[in-house]
Design a binder for these strands. Structure first.
Lengths: 133, 133
DNA sequence: TGTAAACCTTACAGCTGCTGGAAGGTCAAG
DNA sequence: CTTGACCTTCCAGCAGCTGTAAGGTTTACA
């Protein structure tokens, strides 16, 4: 399997796969006679693993940890689970932040008449820097 | 007002203020005789403006737009308002994404026994790359 | 057989939005 | 007169890729 097929199968881009190899997130791919990277089923599975982990919000560093756990038969599943729950909490926090920002924006928007004139409560408010603190 | 006082008054760091000047987001600060940057009330207000805009989710490029609008007496407040509402929508989208990620994580966590053993549904699932698609 | 498109390779630059550090000048307190 | 806290510039680095250049290979088709 060439890199672009592996990309299609894993959901990553070829570029990203090379990049992950570069930063040693994943081991160097084996090579065909012509020097092309070659991926077997288990290599693709690893790519998919990383892709999924990234999708649910793990950083590359955290993916490294997860891959280590995956290859460590001495692992405790409790450890893995705690990483997942921790990430969950982080997402929760981030969501709260975004909701905060959104409510500030909605508040700003509600104060602005939104017409052809230049008077704008949004610009005024931003300059005042209150932001309800 | 020195840069650190301006920083304290605006909520930005000195570093960030210099950076914003560097990328020409804000005009070059005036200088005292000793070469130190000097900020008056209106300069500080501009800094605060940018800080607030960043806080509610505007990118630096968008801040540039907002500053232009602020200094443009021909502006229509409707234009400003639409930028704010658009940003609101973007936040909404991002929040949805994070919620999605969170629900995938919760689902993964629920499948994992979380004990001393190595068997872990999370690692299995990530490798399978299903992610409920 | 030729050639053009579609792959593959490496290497390096750039993106966003800062932050840290080095090397040096200035200023206020004791 | 020294010490510490400012200030200055400039350059490097963080995450996590993505784009581009310059070249080699393979495949399809005329």
């Amino acid at each position: 399997m060439n890199i672009s097929a592996a990309a299609a199968a894993s959901g990553l881009s070829s570029k990203t796969i090379r990049y992950y190899e570069d930063i040693e997130l994943i081991p160097p791919a084996s090579r065909a006679d012509n020097g092309y990277r070659y991926y077997d089923v288990s290599a693709v599975e690893q790519l998919r693993f990383v892709h999924q982990a990234r999708l649910v919000g793990f950083s590359v560093a955290e993916c490294r940890q997860l891959l280590e756990l995956q290859s460590n038969s001495q692992r405790h599943s409790a450890h893995v689970k705690s990483l997942v729950l921790e990430k969950c909490d982080q997402l929760e926090q981030r969501i709260e932040e975004l909701l905060q920002m959104q409510s500030m924006l909605r508040d700003l928007a509600s104060r602005c008449s939104g017409n052809e004139g230049p008077d704008c409560a949004i610009l005024d408010e931003l300059g005042r820097g209150s932001a309800h603190e």
